[in-house]
Design a protein around this nucleic acid. Structure first.
Lengths: 209, 209, 209, 209
DNA sequence: AATGAATGAGTATTCATTCAT
DNA sequence: AATGAATGAATACTCATTCAT
């Protein structure tokens, strides 16, 4: 067997590598400027490549955006599934989830913003929106089930599990979004204190008495 | 013979009226499409007027957007101030705030989205972003002080008041944003249950002893 | 015979009066901004009337412009014809023409500019251009004939009369146009000295010897 | 291995080349239609390029216009300076100037028209107007000084040198402008005879006696 | 007649995408 | 593969003209 295969796979690796570079450079730009507000030029300037090159790795601006959203949503679900699959009590697993999920959001709020943007923004192709929201519902479902389990174990307050799940995730998302701007804004004045993971779990405490 | 005065003031009223119509039609469009993604045509089609007319009432697309953000932020602060000024225990006042603030957000999530957009999006003029974030910090401050009071009264858990405030408002915002898409998305499948106001207050419960 | 005629004629006078006011206000505006650069708003602001009113007196922007050009050209020809009909030697009549024609051009260069604009500018309806240039050729013809007469009387240099005529009128026009800007421009620095009428006639002096 | 340098300099040449093509195509269009009356489409259609391309070479319509005016004025001054620096008597140098300056104006009256437009038209940015008129005053100054010299040499009539200079240049400009329309207009009927350079100098002849 | 609001076609400019090198 | 020039559709904004009062 000759060598072409080797150079072929190397080429493939380079391609994948390039694609990743572009995506990583693109995410924060989309987050900051929104889908419609982002120009191909912005994207490729951030990636330090020539604009024309984008079209060797993606078919369109949409395509880049979709890839980012896809990855972000997939990442969220992955963590939720890991939490689900862990050992430990339901509450312990929820705590692990929040502690694993929140800090990176504080570091890279762009992904949350891009996902939000993808869901909200009509400029984004409808199929992406549908697809993404379906994933999110799955995401919520996983958390809701963990909460239910915790309630059966008596570790979690007896309220509608779905409402509790939505509340938890809304707070997580709100915080990620908030970091993006209040973080920046408050930096200028006095830094705003963002809640530690533990705070997010307070609402779940079982009732006294 | 002061006749002109009458028609003059009438004209002013009509102008104000028209401005309002445009703003009310524009808010949901901006919320759905984002600033850059919204065309003047979209705005004026929603308002059922000819596009050119917009420029008799606003100087630019920016101008319309800013007016909406301004109003939304002002409205938020107003409610917070009313809560502050109310009689009753701090917790009761916070409950009133959440019960007053949340349901309209479920009804009209567009305003929250527009504000978020204004803060996040670089396509939005920088001064608007700065101005708006300053208001938001004031908003947070009011809620934080209410929480502090509640803590002194023993009604609220002893944790960093600012973190608790940020958490509360992040959840509120996250829910408003979430309604916009998950509401719509879940409508297609099975409706998602969004938390009642009471849920938002669970995190504030004082610790069991 | 009843009275309606009287009020009827009064109405007519008012109409004519209004038309004139508009034209007089419009000429300098067109001169300064050109045809395409002038807005109806500019015109009517200068005339201190509401924009809509223009359409009671003229059918369009073109119409106003044409009326001004027409009047200006007609005025030029009138003076040339008066010079033609005068008594005195051909050179004396030419002198009268230049002395009568030039100073008002220095005072109101706008008309010369508007005529030039009408001839040059393709934004102006083609028929106006043709019509106007036909008039101008007539204008040149009158001056050329006066020069010919002067040559036969030995008062004027023996050169192609048409060339001399074109030269004279080009200078007149060039000076009118020049006043509009060099006058203004030089006012800021040191005033530029524009030629007295006599200078324009120097080229016509018969040869020495 | 300095290969990139070569292609880099080639690129620059191509850019400059393109800029020139656009300018050359644009000048007559601006001359015919005026600044406000000229559409980007007109410009680029004349240059046989797509409209969007203009913006890779100029920042705006203004920018193109300014470049043309700048070049035209600069060209005028250059010729005046060459006349100034020549050998020969003042009158001979003036004759050289007129003979060099006038015929190209007959060929390409567009530049004179564009300059006139730049000075007259308020649609043109004020700074361009000021800048250009300053140049023109310099231009006049050079000619005035040549005339003064000629007067001292007894070659030129004893009249205010500045008035003579303004007259000469007004005639030159008037002829250039005139060619643009009377040339075209008269073509349709009978050709009008435009003055030969020599005619322009007649006014300068010293007095008989 | 007079006013100023309403309309919508038109224009400068931008930007995703394609193409030549 | 990589670059950056070229294309042209799309969009904010303007302005002549019409209309309601």
């Amino acid at each position: 067997m000759p060598r072409p295969a080797a150079s072929e796979s190397t080429r493939q690796e380079l391609r994948t590598q390039r694609r990743m570079e572009i995506l990583q450079a693109a995410a924060p730009v989309f987050a900051r400027k929104g889908f419609a507000g982002t120009k191909i030029t912005d994207l490729m300037a951030a990636a330090q490549m020539s604009q024309g090159l984008l079209y060797r790795y993606f078919t369109s601006k949409d395509d880049v955006f979709i890839a980012i959203v896809e990855a972000a949503v997939q990442h969220s679900i992955d963590i939720a599934r890991q939490a689900e699959a862990r050992s430990g009590s339901p509450l312990e697993r929820l705590r692990w989830f929040v502690e694993t999920y929140l800090p990176p959001q504080y570091e890279h709020p762009e992904y949350a913003l891009v996902v939000a943007h993808a869901l909200t923004n009509e400029a984004v192709p409808a199929e992406v929106r549908v697809h993404t929201s379906r994933y999110l519902i799955e995401f919520i479902g996983i958390i809701r089930d963990l909460i239910s389990e915790g309630q059966m174990a008596g570790e979690i307050i007896q309220r509608d599990a779905e409402q509790l799940a939505v509340h938890l995730l809304a707070a997580l998302h709100g915080l990620a979004a908030g970091t993006a701007f209040l973080g920046a804004a408050s930096a200028q004045e006095q830094a705003l204190r963002f809640p530690e993971p533990e705070i997010l779990l307070l609402a779940l405490r079982p009732d006294h008495s």
